[in-house]
Design a protein around this nucleic acid. Structure first.
Length: 799
RNA sequence: GGCGACGUGGCGGAAUGGUAGACGCGCUGGAUUCAAAAUCCAGUGGCUGCGAGGUCGUGUGGGUUCAAGUCCCACCGUCGCUACCA
């Protein structure tokens, strides 16, 4: 067969897609299997080799599952709201709707060119009204249950994108989109009460089949810690300054307190604080600092001592000063800390600079030199009732004491904050809320959904961080659905994470106009059996979507408590230079040129052969040729096919069936392909190949390189395509080697090899090993102290 | 700073504690060809030896073990995530 990839691939793609060969069937009798890959953002760049790699894993698994007799749901869609499209629309003066539709069409064609076996009848697009209607519907439910609320706080604001960013989108003090330094801005914004689910999000991880590093990253993100809330009285006031600490055992060492610049105490005790001018100046400075300055340039501690008020240490009744300093964050714990300089490096640094008392309360270090951070070992000193106790004992005793005296409680805290849920841009789901002077905030009635994005001429965001929707009077002005009075619409839109937080549900019933998805269909398809995606989405998207899913479960909309059974991640494909692919570095590999030159089968095989699937690895153009050669060798086997049986390759054939099966299930595609290459090389040496054996090889290669396999399968005279032919199983009898080689080593060094047969006993093997000429030379005149036999592997003789 | 992963030929990478370097790329030699491409065959970690072989070798230094790339400890380096988290 001449390998004309263009012709073959076109032919089979037309056949599959025109005949809907990958259609997922609702309520089929077959067992269901739901494979999910993260849906792409339809950028103008189109498909990237990263997409190929990301989708290929479950593409392989989906093809294999169909052959194994499953009813497979393997869907694809588009997460199409977001800034790049909007920015492009602003620049080129084209409506984002037009840009999005065009990009989606291109992307879908590219996916088909790659031969991906998605069910293309279930394609969804988060920007379509019939989709975001349900995104808004979920928001309304969240709002009704008090899970969505509005609050005035300092938010991360990108002066370039003119957008309020969540903490997740402004990591490292830089805007996720444009890298501009983020500043703090006070604003009324929407939040989702995800912190209420912190514990459940943590517990749900126990049910998730995933790698430890993936689970740990999520656990760290949620950031649970345990300790105590402790109340400190502020002298001569009714004020109680509450702190959160993980180290209540060090309470006797608390020699001063620090509150965040935004702490409400400053406003409340305004009159008593004598140096309020200095405090105000400090607050202003802190506000102007970007996140970057606050974190990266934090080497030097700054702060202002409050003049006029002091706190009382509740254990020893000592008066201790209160400082304002920006090393304490308003958003974590209570925004105030008890400072224990002897045993916390930040407090130590601050105490040294501001000349505060340092009292050692845990022995073992040298607090003259540095903070002693002992956690487990170490005995309490200078600590009244807990002297002599271990840290653990002291913690328990102090908490009991605090609770008894009613000045503190055992407490749990989470790093995770409520989810800042808003954008001030055009291309997003309008938040379906109406502001009425009489009734307050009222959700848009469900029958009025969706709140449709209005047509506008200018998508440019307002200078003050206002949404472009705010300037459209026909949109803003409405009537209150409760009292009928004139009212105004909310003009914020949702962040991009919204549409992706439930998309996997919509795939089960993508055209439903009554509910987000039919409950019976959800019961049939959910949960997602296997979800593959990027490491970068493990902490944000996965947690957000689990939160929404848990909420939807609580209100009876979905049948499972957790959405995903298994989560895996793919490693990045780096540029040929080993750097992350980027347009600016000019090291981007375009998958379409590879498909053009070598074919989709080659591209698919190469992107999986390139290295460990879960590890990052650089692209290598030469490697592509190897993948292509493999397929050519496979095609050449066709010429050797006969009806006659051939025993010469049976062992390796059946071993390969076993290993390829196992490797696919454990994402070891690189070794699966290596073993298939070995098999094809071996069978190439045979005089003739039995037709049924060649069929097995085609079935094994099919998930990786389906087009050429279909062609060869067809060439054998089959009229039915390979999509639902049965996956091969190995014959256990055939993988047992009758004659095999064992290594004989002396003191762990390999010295000889012996041929044994499967029937030989261990003592026979040892005798054979000892009597080998090479071994006799080495053991002559020495006493054999020990002989270790590892069945079918080696004999080690210790002298 | 914290958490995590990783470190193996010229390159990408294989190795349930049991023959280190599977498989691929590249390279060398040969066959084929008028020649080339393609294809096929052989070889391909270092040092050493005519040779059978010997010896060293998985970032560095220790340890456990009959046996360590693999397990443990320390250090060095690279990458990812996170970050004054109290």
């Amino acid at each position: 067969m001449e390998y004309n990839h263009k012709e073959i691939e076109k032919k089979w793609q037309d056949h599959w897609f025109n005949n809907k060969r990958f259609e997922a069937v609702d309520f089929s009798e077959k067992p269901k299997y739901y494979n999910l890959v993260e849906f792409p953002y339809p950028s103008g760049e189109g498909m990237h080799v990263g997409h190929i790699r990301a989708y290929s894993s479950l593409e392989i698994v989906s093809r294999k599952r169909r052959m194994e007799g499953y009813n497979v749901l393997f869907p694809i869609g588009f997460d199409a709201f977001g800034l790049p499209t909007e920015n492009y629309a602003i620049k080129k003066k084209v409506h984002p709707r037009i840009v999005t539709d065009k990009n989606i069409e291109i992307f879908l064609n590219q996916l088909k060119t790659g031969g991906y076996s998605f069910d293309y009848d279930r394609v969804i697009d988060t920007t379509q009204e019939d989709y975001y209607r349900w995104t808004q519907w979920i928001f309304v439910q969240l709002f009704k249950k008090g899970m969505a609320f509005r609050d005035r706080t300092f938010v991360n604001y990108c002066p370039s994108c003119k957008v309020v960013l969540s903490n997740e989108d402004s990591q490292g003090g830089k805007c996720d989109r444009c890298d501009t330094a983020v500043v703090q801005k006070e604003k009324d914004v929407w939040f989702l009460r995800i912190t209420k689910h912190a514990e459940r999000l943590l517990e749900g991880l126990n049910e998730l089949d995933t790698l430890p590093r993936i689970r740990i990253e999520q656990e760290n993100w949620i950031g649970k810690s345990t300790g105590a809330h402790v109340d400190f009285k502020v002298k001569d006031t009714d004020e109680v300054l509450q702190v959160y600490t993980t180290r209540p055992d060090t309470l006797y060492g608390a020699t001063f307190m620090v509150i965040a610049p935004e702490h409400h105490l400053l406003k409340r005790q305004h009159d008593k604080i004598k140096n309020m001018d200095a405090v105000h100046r400090y607050q202003e400075e802190a506000k102007l600092k970007t996140e970057f300055e606050r974190v990266e340039l934090a080497k030097d501690k700054t702060g202002v001592k409050l003049d006029g008020i002091v706190a009382i240490n509740p254990l020893n009744q000592k008066e201790i000063p209160i400082f304002v300093a920006d090393y304490v964050m308003i958003g974590y714990g209570t925004g105030a800390i008890m400072a224990v300089p002897a045993h916390d490096s930040r407090d130590y640094e601050f105490a040294k600079k501001f000349d505060c008392e340092i009292v050692e309360v845990i022995s073992g270090g040298n607090v003259e030199e540095e903070a002693y951070l002992a956690t487990d070992e170490g005995i309490l000193v200078n600590s009244g009732m807990i002297n002599g106790l271990t840290v653990q004992e002291a913690k328990e005793k102090i908490i009991a004491y605090l609770e008894e005296k009613n000045i503190g409680t055992k407490a749990t805290n989470y790093k995770m904050k409520d989810w800042a849920f808003n954008r001030q841009r055009y291309w997003g789901e309008p938040i379906p809320v109406i502001h009425c002077d009489v009734c307050g905030m009222v959700p848009v009635p469900e029958e009025d959904l969706p709140v449709v994005l209005p047509e506008v001429d200018d998508f440019q965001p307002g200078e003050g961080g206002e949404s472009p929707l705010a300037s459209i009077e026909e949109f803003v002005n409405t009537t209150c659905p409760v009292c009928g009075q004139p009212a105004k619409r909310e003009t914020d839109t949702m962040p991009q994470w919204a549409g992706s937080s439930w998309y996997f549900l919509r795939y089960t019933d993508p055209r439903n106009t009554k509910v987000l998805a039919d409950y019976k269909k959800l019961e049939y398809w959910m949960p997602v059996d296997w979800y593959n995606g990027g490491m970068e989405h493990v902490t944000r998207h996965v947690i957000y979507s689990r939160f929404w899913h848990q909420f939807l479960f609580d209100i009876g909309v979905v049948p499972t408590a957790e959405p995903y059974k298994k989560r895996t991640v793919q490693g990045l494909i780096l540029g040929p230079d080993g750097d992350k692919m980027s347009k600016t570095k000019g090291n981007v590999v375009n998958p379409l040129t590879i498909i053009e030159e070598y074919g989709a089968d080659t591209l698919r095989v190469y992107t999986l052969f390139i290295g460990d699937y879960e590890q990052s690895t650089p692209w290598n153009d030469n490697g592509v040729k190897g993948a292509r050669r493999f397929l050519e060798k496979l095609a050449r086997l066709e010429t050797k096919v006969s009806d006659e049986e051939n025993q010469s390759y049976q062992t390796i054939l059946h071993k390969t069936i076993k290993m390829v099966d196992e490797d696919i299930e454990s994402l070891k595609f690189n070794t699966a392909i290596a073993k298939l290459m070995t098999l094809v090389n071996e069978m190439g040496k045979a005089e003739h190949i039995c037709k049924t054996d060649f069929e097995i090889v085609l079935k094994l290669v099919y998930p990786f390189a389906p087009h050429i396999c279909e062609e060869l399968w067809n060439g054998l005279g089959h009229t039915e395509d390979m999509v639902y032919v049965s996956w091969p199983t190995y014959d256990p009898a055939k993988i047992v080697e009758t004659v095999l080689e064992m290594v004989v080593s002396v003191n762990g060094k390999v010295r000889d090899k012996i041929q044994i047969t499967a029937e030989m006993s261990e003592s026979e093997i040892v005798e054979l090993a000892k009597s080998s000429e090479r071994i006799l030379e080495l053991t002559e005149g020495k006493a054999i102290r020990k002989v270790i036999v590892v069945p079918n592997k080696l004999v080690n003789i210790v002298v």
